[in-house]
Each structure stands twice: as structure tokens, then as C-alpha cells.
Amino acid sequence: MLGEGIVKGLAETARNFLGSFIEKDRLVTVQYPEERLPVVEAARMFPFLIYDGVDQEEGLRCVACQICEKECPPQCIHIEKSKDKKPDFIGKQQFYPAVFDIDVSVCMSCQICVEVCPFDAIRMDNEFELSTDDRFAGLLWPKEKLAMPNEHYLAIHPTEATEVEARRAEEKAQAEAKKASQPAAVAK
């Protein structure tokens, strides 16, 4: 019969309309600023620089090798190498970045900088509320703003971070063992 389907459809929409007032779990919308879903561990938004210890300048893992700068597809990373050197976590003398800027508005969250970094110095943050009212200075993040403690990394990407930690501990142990054995060899 003509019109039967329309009546059925109207009943269905009415059921949904009334149901949304009675059953709260029908409403799947997350009221964003007040409510938020837990962030997925693999979520990535924008890179940050990891530093060990408490001092930002001292513990920064980055050695200003500029691989990420070269690999970055949209060319949003700008690095200037330092003139002097400082020891890294295994005591080796390394350069450090005098300037390290990333342009938020250009970055495309591809994570290539993370993939290529041989020093585990750059990782992706899951912070996504990056809006600002200053579209020039506010969107060009300097080294000071990019640097985050290693604890932050452990907090947001625990699985990946513990792996990295283990590897770094092993490297450090190897380096120390080498250092310990070298003087012995010389003595021989």
C-alpha cells in the first residue's frame, strides 16, 4: 500500500527521537571540551625533543645531525649546529642544536623525523590542542618549547618507550664495559 513505508519511517524516527531522551547511551556524541576520550597509545600529532635528567640544555639527546631536517617532507624543521661539544649519555663528545625550530603550521605529522633519528631524540607527542591566537610566533616552536622530559615519553607511549629505554641501557652498559676493558688492554 502506498504510504505504508512513510508511516513506518515516521515511527522509526519518532522512536529514535524519544529514545534519545530516555536511553542516554543512544547519544554517542562526546561533549568534547568537558568530556574526552582516552588517547590511543599510538596516537601522534607533533614531534617533541626528549631530554634526560632535569636540565633541558644538558640532557637534550639531539646531536644536531640534521638528518630529520633533511628528511622532513614539508621542510618544517630548522636546525643550527652548535660550535662547541658536550658529552652525551655514554660520555661521547657530541654537537648539540643551538637552534631547533619546528613550524606547527607546516608539520604534517608523518613521523618520518622519528623514524630516521639514530639517537632516539625526537618522538611524536599526542597533544592535539595546538591552536594559538598568534599565527607567527605562536606557531613556530623553538627548542625550549619542544623539549620534554623522558618521563613524558614514558607516560604517553609506554610500550615503545620501555623498549627504547632497554636498548639505551644496553648501549650504555656496552660502552661502559668497553671503557672498562680498554684501559685494561692498554695496561697489558
Binding site: T13, N16, F17, V28
Partner: peptide
């Protein structure tokens, strides 16, 4: 608001 409720939105 009505259309929203029909589609189970706010």
C-alpha cells in the same frame, strides 16, 4: 535540535 535527536545527536 529535533533533527539531532532523530539522528541520536544532541
Amino acid at each position: 535540535k529535533g533533527l539531532g535527536r532523530i539522528q541520536n545527536r544532541y
